[in-house]
Write a protein that binds this DNA or RNA. Structure first.
Lengths: 338, 338
DNA sequence: AATTAGCACTCACGACAAATGAGTGCTAAA
DNA sequence: TTTAGCACTCATTTGTCGTGAGTGCTAATT
């Protein structure tokens, strides 16, 4: 279908996008001729441009202006033209290496690293916690007849507020409760627990309260983790001239400051897609004139989160994708060396 | 000094500020006459305005425009004119009550509540953790030769990653370590601990590693807490026409997204000041055309944090201060009822 | 001495017109 | 199929002018 573009048209389209990515100005036929295709005349390029426009790849702000790429053009560019060469990779790698001492730092503030290198606003989202497995639940005796709840998962330990214990025979109570808690929760996935409120009823009446508190703790934890979104470098957006328009800024802020919207845009139904590139409102109603590039990262086969950038449509896709890929490789290395 | 304004001048200044707060337009002498002072002529008001301008309370965008209040005017207004009546308080109270079921909700997302009621961007900052006292430090036996560190403070429990234990005789090791940890840390303030790295040297060599890990945990905790800033309702800023100017928006974002700057602006050397109102760049170089109103909250005599709003200079100081005060009262009630 | 009416003056703002020039589409020739 | 040439379009810039809001000043009034 759309893949049938002649080489020259591809070349013209690429020239147009490259130029627009760096200049943010409509490009004229003669500009393309001078800088990218000196062997043909501007008139030829003009007729090619007319065809490309008919095909929906280009638009013209007005009749006496040059052309700018449409969302479809970026889409085509990312899908069919863009290639990340070893050179690009090498370059990114060396930037990553000189800027950050260890991969640990990158994991910790991944969003900041990505934002700094790409020069776009970046976002880090923690993945669904459905598959976290609880290894054990323990009460630890504290003071004043309270106990601390520890929920040990395959992904770290959750702890939260103390819970109150019944007055008498605390030591014994905790022991029995720990046994019950272990039998009820250990080995279960978070998602199972959250959806099976009836666990409580099956238990002994004396421990009902403790169970409820533990359950709430787990539910809260799940909810909080899933809402977690880190945004870095919001002010980088002002580097791009399209964000001299207050309406674009409003739009940007309203997306970036709204966790739910961000999730909606980034979350991919298809679990197997590693890199996601959403361009313009064809991809999502809210993304007018914007683009989101994101990657899913895994650790030991388990999805741990998504990292990406959000910026103007005329984004440096090559660089962004190279950075995200390179970080992916670093994760792999980290996994293998351990 | 500046306190010597005649009643009529006060009245005019108040009229000007009130009008500008709601309209965001320069006010002319005749407008003041019509709406606020029908008993004198506009010419009289004009000459008063000229004097007020000379005194630095007013500025004129250009010669054929009305006047707008300067930072100094707002300052004077807040310090010498503004009074919060019982009526205002009642009104805020009823809004708070109808909007939020319990004080708990307000504590939990204080920033959101304040932003919703005032209609300004709000911020919540956790206070210095210097005075948090450690009650105990405990290792809890986990699996695979690891232990979880629990640091119990008068302000909740900190837990963090597991730490590795020496291979043999785990149970005994933990017991001894717990004793040592208790003796080293219990009763000390966070600030003391962070500044006394030499604790380690005094301890037995076998436990050096555990001590270091615990110490790092405490230091990290302190650092993280202090950096914590919650911002709510950033997009509310677009409700105010001064933020149709992209430069003001840039300025706003750069302040609001920069924890350090915010701390710098809000942090008050004088520990006794409860309400702080900073207006314009007289107060802080970065606050060009903006104002920050914030309050310090205490619980059991201990400062727990600051809550406030940031917005245009022509802020509804009355409402904002009333809301912050009312929330303060709720804290007091909460304390007394417990 | 304070207030006021009256009037000349300033200046932002919007409307309109004219000039400019960048870039196009089309046509006819190579 | 490509290209040179040219007429055409239209955003942008610049300049002029009229309008009106609001002021500052002065002279008269209380």
């Amino acid at each position: 279908m759309d893949k049938e573009l002649s080489e020259r048209r591809k070349k013209i389209l690429t020239a147009l996008i490259d130029s627009y990515i760096s200049e943010a100005e409509p490009i004229s036929s003669s500009a393309i001729q001078e800088k990218y295709l000196p062997d043909v005349s501007s008139a030829t390029i003009r007729s090619e441009l007319a065809t490309l426009e008919e095909m929906g790849f280009l638009t013209q702000p007005h009749v006496s202006a040059g052309r700018i790429p449409s969302s479809k053009a970026y889409r085509y560019y990312v899908d069919n033209i863009l290639e990340i060469s070893d050179d690009d990779t090498e370059q990114i790698k060396s930037i990553l290496e000189t800027k950050y001492d260890s991969i640990k730092e990158i994991v910790k503030d991944g969003a900041k690293v990505v934002s700094d290198i790409t020069n776009y606003t970046s976002m880090l989202m923690i993945s669904s916690t459905d598959n976290i497995v609880i290894n054990d639940v323990k009460l630890v005796d504290m003071y004043d007849g309270t106990a601390l709840v520890l929920v040990v998962t395959n992904n770290g330990t959750i702890k939260d507020k103390d819970i109150k214990l019944p007055e008498n025979n605390v030591k014994n109570y905790i022991e029995v409760a720990n046994g019950l808690l272990y039998r009820s929760f250990a080995g279960k996935k978070l998602v199972e627990i959250v959806h099976s409120h009836n666990i409580i009823d099956a238990q002994l009446h004396d421990f009902k309260e403790v169970f409820e508190q533990v359950l709430n703790l787990i539910i809260d934890y799940k909810k909080n983790r899933e809402e977690q979104v880190v945004i870095e470098g919001k002010d980088k957006i002002f580097n791009y001239p399209e964000y001299n328009d207050i309406n674009n800024v409003k739009n940007f802020i309203s997306i970036v400051d709204n966790k739910d919207k961000l999730h909606e845009i980034v979350d991919e139904k298809d679990g197997s897609i590693e890199f996601s590139v959403k361009i313009g409102k064809d991809a999502d109603e809210k993304l007018e004139d914007m683009a989101v590039v994101s990657a899913k990262y895994k650790m030991n086969g388990e999805e741990i989160g998504q990292l990406g950038v959000i910026g103007p449509q005329r984004m440096n896709y090559k660089k962004v994708l190279a950075v995200l890929k390179e970080i992916g490789k670093m994760f792999e290395d980290l996994e293998n060396n351990k």
